[in-house]
Design a protein around this nucleic acid. Structure first.
Lengths: 344, 344
DNA sequence: GTTAGCACTCTGGCCTTCTGAGTGCTAATT
DNA sequence: AATTAGCACTCAGAAGGCCAGAGTGCTAAC
């Protein structure tokens, strides 16, 4: 447990370093308004803090820099407990204004977030499997090709082009669509394959010629793995950070960000609420000197998606955490309202 | 006009520099297999070439580097006339395999192209205004919101969510959709607004209550400016180029690439076929030491889209030009076939 | 016309020096 | 006993000097 004085000095060091990116020395600290101690005294405190592992030197006669342990302490004990709801209004306006199209909202949020913070924002879109089928449509283009369209109750639209095998006639296709629409309305996307196999298959068998073939085609058209929606905003923001001056780092970072699977993997967390991952706490080597703050937004009790900000370990934790918290709350609220409206 | 010897030396310099990125000296040239002249002779030729403006020194006692004029000459007189159709098979397989979904094809092409060349590829998707409306659909989600879906004969799907104003009833909405589908089928997207105003408006007036309001809403839902589809592949490839060692350059470049409008603007060219833009020939300051090779692909006589590769001025022009040429031909062919099939 | 030879130039790597910021410790002060 | 002033010491990074190497231009010989 830190003494009050130690905590004060630690805070000052972290705040100063977050702002300036330079190691902070005893003299500079003693000059701050809320410090009335001499540099020498502060040196003693700093020696203690270093021994405890909260700060470090970059070389034997340099000023101090917060260690990861230091940031962790700061996040857990300083910013965590005193979370204000600042910036709520911006987020609220954003979410309320644009809610009709969920995907666009998510995308725009990513942009706003990265503009506001100057870090890189990553948003994992809603898992559409949790939403329900509203309508299914097949539009023939030519004799042998068509596009299948699937609309969910959240206003999401998926489409796939596919070839119609010669064995399936236009009337058969129409019948199939009718059957599907009749039976599948309101079924969650996750359950679609199951329901098709148990209920629809037998129906098709009765009405449709060569149903087996049709079934195969439908399946391949709709039940391929759904791509995860991933939005990244302000990828270039990090370039302005002073710690990003090494070309090798830049390369490693961008190479990693190009790999969608890896980014998704990074964000996926079972945890609700805000989660802060500092430096080496991160999964991947490439971002071992970054910090990642994730917040999830919900749809009922199901987790739906994740919002995250990625920046240097020297990150404005207070600001970022407040912001993400506000946005995730707003999004959860908006989703709840939407859901309710949909029920009626 | 260059003498044969001068041309030979120029070629060697350019080829060597493209490969090594280092200024090339007389001694190195004289050692090449296809050169049987001494370094001193070559120095004389080089002095001539420099006087003519085709090569430059980086400092008074350095080797020579091609100037932009040099690259231009090389492209126009060396690679242009002797274009082989190499790599055709890769491109053909790519295009043929995947043609069903045009957008995915374009996206994948961008990837393949950047992988194959290690430069950044940019593809401007097909201008969907040239294609024709196949079907229009409105799917109501709740009492006051719906999603409008528009399918073109090329299999492209656009969708927009919108709010239904209280004044418009469900039956009216249905009527409107019926009218629209009836009248608009086969009309090119570009002509939609016009046809709606001249033909459909009067019909709506007859059948639909409060048609004016409905009309406004439809218009806003469908005839907003269509976003241009832009695919960029291998953004990080350029990081591996040695000329990209200056952080400022990197920043300027990425900042520019984030601005979609600017990128689109860069690619838009009235010209058919292959176009090479070297260094300062480019529109924007940010890429004044890059080269851009663009190729357009067609749909009938209408230009549809553009494929481009962006790399350092020290670019493998021969390879890139051959590749782009092949791909653009394949895409034009594929589009032609598709179009024909659609007619029948 | 071509080539060998030589003096000259410039870059980039390496070493040294020097300054300024910052520390740790000791002794004096409150 | 806690705080502070004073001082010697350390280290990074900037500035300058010093080469070696690659390359050139020019002259004179082939």
């Amino acid at each position: 447990m830190l003494t009050e004085r130690q905590l004060l000095i630690l805070q000052v060091i972290i705040d100063d370093f977050i702002e300036s990116a330079n190691p902070v020395g005893s003299r500079a600290i003693s000059k701050k308004d809320d410090i009335s101690l001499s540099a020498a005294t502060i040196r003693n405190v700093m020696a203690d803090l270093e021994e405890l592992g909260y700060i470090e030197k970059t070389h034997s006669s340099s000023g101090r820099v917060p260690s990861e342990k230091g940031y962790r302490y700061y996040v857990d004990n300083v910013v965590g407990p005193h979370m204000e709801n600042g910036n709520l209004s911006i987020m609220r306006d954003l979410v309320r204004d644009d809610f009709i199209d969920f995907e666009k909202l998510v995308q725009k949020s990513a942009e706003v977030l990265s503009d506001l913070t100057n870090y890189t924002s990553i948003i994992l879109g809603p898992e559409i499997f949790e939403t329900k089928l509203k309508q299914l449509q097949i539009v023939p283009l030519t004799d042998h090709s068509a596009v299948a369209i699937l609309v969910t109750d959240s206003g999401h639209v998926e489409h796939r082009s596919f070839t119609i095998p010669a064995e399936i006639s236009a009337t058969d296709l129409e019948k199939i669509v009718n059957i599907l629409n009749d039976r599948l309305n309101g079924i969650s996307l996750a359950r679609l394959p199951e329901v098709i196999t148990t209920e629809v298959l037998s129906l098709m068998q009765m009405y449709v010629h060569d149903f087996e073939k049709s079934y195969q085609y439908l399946k391949s058209a709709f039940f391929k793995e759904q791509p995860v929606k991933l939005y990244i905003g302000g990828k270039t923001n990090l370039l302005t950070q002073p710690e990003f001056n090494d070309i090798k780092k830049i390369r490693a970072f961008y190479q990693m960000m190009e790999n969608e699977d890896q980014v998704v993997n990074l964000l996926k967390t079972p945890q609700h609420g805000i989660k802060v991952t500092i430096g080496n706490e991160n999964k991947f080597e490439e971002i071992k000197d970054f910090s990642l703050i994730t917040a999830s937004y919900q749809f009922g009790n199901e987790q739906m998606g994740t919002i995250a900000l990625l920046g240097p370990t020297r990150m404005e934790y207070r600001k970022v955490i407040t912001l993400l918290n506000a946005l995730s709350n707003e999004m959860t609220d908006a989703l709840y309202l939407w859901y309710k409206n949909n029920e009626t």
